[in-house]
Computed example of a mutant assay.
Amino acid sequence: MVVNPAWELIARRLIARFGQDAVIMRPGEPTDDGYGNEIPGEPTAYPARAAVIDANVVLAHQQTGSLEPGDVRVLISTEGLPIEPDTADALWIGSEDWIITSVARLATDGEPLFFDMRVGR
């Protein structure tokens, strides 16, 4: 997806100004217990910088049907993030645990600039 330069600038400013520490938790590889059952592997934590989008924007998206009540839109900086988040991951912001319901990779020339996520409980 090609990013509008104005939107890129806005996203960078939002993350810089309102960003807070977050952690993307990637589930570990499951192992077989020898009886055909999977044992979840140890999750890996990836520190990130996240900005939660203003509640008024979230409400506007809820009215158009792109967000469910209780969902939040979050911008994640790619700076220093060695993975590309997906819906199998979880997001921690402060002490709150969020389920990632969708991730949009926003990039120019194939290089990701940030991730636009919708997260819920």
Rank of each mutant, 00 (worst) to 15 (best):
E29K: 13
N37I: 06
S66G: 02
T44V: 12
H61N: 04
L75D: 09
L106I: 08
V119L: 08
F114H: 13
E111A: 03
R73N: 03
E8F: 08
I15F: 10
R13S: 13
G34P: 09
E111H: 06
G65H: 11
L67Q: 05
P112S: 00
G65C: 09
G65D: 10
S66Q: 07
A88C: 04
G36Y: 11
G110L: 04
L106R: 12
D97M: 11
R17K: 06
R13E: 12
V52F: 09
E79I: 09
M117P: 09
R105K: 05
D32W: 04
P27I: 04
S95K: 12
E96Y: 13
N37S: 03
A50F: 02
L106Y: 06
T64N: 12
R17A: 08
Y46M: 04
A60K: 05
S77C: 01
E8W: 07
E84L: 03
D86Q: 03
V72P: 08
D21I: 09
A6M: 06
T31E: 15
R26I: 02
I83F: 10
V57S: 14
D97Y: 14
A51Q: 11
Q20H: 00
A88Q: 13
P47G: 11
T31L: 13
D21G: 15
D71Q: 15
G65T: 04
E84R: 12
I83V: 13
D116K: 11
D54V: 10
N4D: 03
P69H: 03
V103A: 11
F115W: 14
P69K: 02
L106W: 06
N56R: 15
R105W: 07
V3M: 08
G65K: 10
P30N: 04
V119H: 07
L9N: 00
L59N: 14
I99W: 05
G70A: 08
I83M: 08
H61C: 07
A11L: 01
L9Q: 00
M117G: 05
D71P: 12
T108A: 07
T44D: 10
V2W: 02
D109L: 14
P5H: 10
E38R: 12
G65R: 05
P30T: 01
A16T: 14
A11G: 00
T101Y: 14
